[in-house]
């Protein structure tokens, strides 16, 4: 699929992998899990607060990926984005069904752990890029995004909790996401330029 089996997949390789998953090929499902299982599981752990729920979520995510595989289009976005969107959507559904006082208190930035031996090289690059982009947001932006993303709050719920106008919350959510996208794009350009200079 690529010369480095642990390195980043090209869009073409991602599309091919999903075709194989769609065809029910076990090796392809294993490859998909090996690459994206850890971040999906970690997101489940962070959002749902227990290893059991995170495992259930991971299983649901990969079954959903198989079911919806025909919709994945690598020309529109990365496979990691697509899978994390599925994972987040399913986790938010669970949160909303199980809303209660036991939800974990969540933060966006932790200290960067040492890379784990199971970590895929390609995913490390994406994760590092994401973490650096997140680090450039203000604390207020991160707090706002964490409640919407990790706790599944709607803009209206945030507005009511913070006693600020709904329109303000919507604008701030949008602005924070646009900044995040810009920071990631800037970092991608810098990385590409650095790569070009060394070759």
């Amino acid at each position: 699929m690529t010369s480095n089996p642990r390195g980043p997949l090209s869009p073409q390789a991602e599309q091919e992998l999903m075709h194989q998953v769609l065809a029910g090929e076990r090796d392809a499902v294993r490859t998909l899990y090996a690459r994206f299982g850890p971040p999906v599981y970690s997101l489940g752990l962070r959002m749902l607060g227990s290893a059991e729920s995170a495992e259930e979520l991971a299983q649901d995510v990969f079954v959903a990926a198989w079911r919806q595989g025909a919709r994945f289009d690598s020309s529109r976005g990365r496979l990691s984005t697509w899978l994390m969107a599925i994972a987040h959507n399913l986790a938010v559904d669970r949160l909303r069904h199980e809303r209660g006082p036991s939800r974990p208190v969540l933060i966006l930035q932790d200290e960067l752990p040492e890379p784990d031996p199971f970590d895929e090289e390609g995913l490390l690059v994406e994760r590092e890029s994401a973490r650096r982009a997140l680090a450039r947001l203000t604390d207020a932006d991160r707090w706002l995004l964490s409640r919407a993303y990790f706790q599944g709050w709607t803009a209206r719920e945030i507005a009511e909790a913070d006693r600020i106008p709904l329109g303000t919350v919507k604008t701030r959510l949008r602005t924070a996401l646009v900044k995040l996208r810009r920071f990631e794009a800037e970092r991608a350009r810098v990385t590409a330029r650095a790569g070009g200079e060394t070759t």
């Binding site: 850890p38 971040p39 599981y41 970690s42 997101l43 752990l45 962070r46 995170a54 976005g77 990365r78 990691s80 984005t81 994390m84 969107a85 994972a87 987040h88 966006l108 930035q109 932790d110 200290e111 960067l112 752990p113 784990d116 970590d119 995913l123 994406e126 994760r127 890029s129 994401a130 973490r131 982009a133 997140l134 995004l145 964490s146 993303y149 990790f150 996401l177 646009v178 995040l180 996208r181 990631e184």
Partner: peptide, 13 residues
């Protein structure tokens, strides 16, 4: 894609 970056930024377990 920006939202997915939040999920990808979670420390891996």
């Amino acid at each position: 894609e920006a939202a997915a970056a939040i999920g990808l930024g979670v420390p891996l377990s």
